[in-house]
């Protein structure tokens, strides 16, 4: 495991914000060989990949929209976005439905592992390199029983320009 003293802004701020031994829950999922964690409070539900209506002339990783109980929800495939894993769709393909800033978004991942709690001590600052996800969207690294989780700042990532999910001001 690599630990640096870098002032990776988000990671640093994030850690200093956490107080005491308070624990936060994370949903972990895999993309290729890496294991990621996102704040459990942003997760609305997990469902299978089913009947996505594609939208013309969109980036490849935007798979289209689905009907989630009457709500039109866009679906992004993180495997395509980050060039990880084999992009096949079958019965076991998983979509994590996120609820971020009053918007609902679904993201396709390789698989969902479990929900874990991390205390402040278990979270290290993010390294500058080493993950396919840009460091500015990484909150830190979580360590649990020899496993290393890359904790993603999913809120920032999903509203970023590169995800093309939110209308950007020109």
């Amino acid at each position: 495991m690599q630990e640096t003293k870098s002032e990776a802004d988000t990671g640093h701020n994030f850690i200093s914000e956490m107080t005491g031994t308070e624990e936060s829950g994370y949903l972990t999922f895999t993309l290729g060989d890496e294991e990621y964690g996102i704040d459990i409070l942003t997760v609305q539900e997990i469902r299978g990949y089913d009947s996505v209506t594609s939208i013309a002339n969109m980036p490849e990783f935007i798979k289209g929209v689905i009907n989630l109980r009457g709500i039109i929800v866009p679906i992004v495939d993180m495997r395509i976005k980050f060039n990880l894993g084999d992009v096949t769709y079958h019965e076991m393909t998983v979509v994590i439905i996120l609820n971020i800033a009053d918007r609902v978004v679904g993201m396709v991942v390789d698989g969902v592992s479990d929900v874990i709690s991390l205390s402040r001590e278990q979270i290290k600052e993010a390294p500058e390199f080493g993950a396919v996800v840009d460091t500015k969207y990484i909150k830190g690294l979580g360590v649990v029983d020899q496993r290393m989780l890359i904790l993603i700042d999913i809120e920032n990532l999903m509203s970023s320009k590169e995800m093309a999910l939110v209308e950007q001001l020109a």
Binding site: I55, A56, N57, I72, P74, R103, V104, L165, E167
Partner: peptide, 13 residues
């Protein structure tokens, strides 16, 4: 239904 609730406007849609 609006596409813009959770997504954004799409040309020609």
């Amino acid at each position: 239904k609006s596409l813009e609730t959770n997504f954004h406007a799409v040309p020609c849609i």
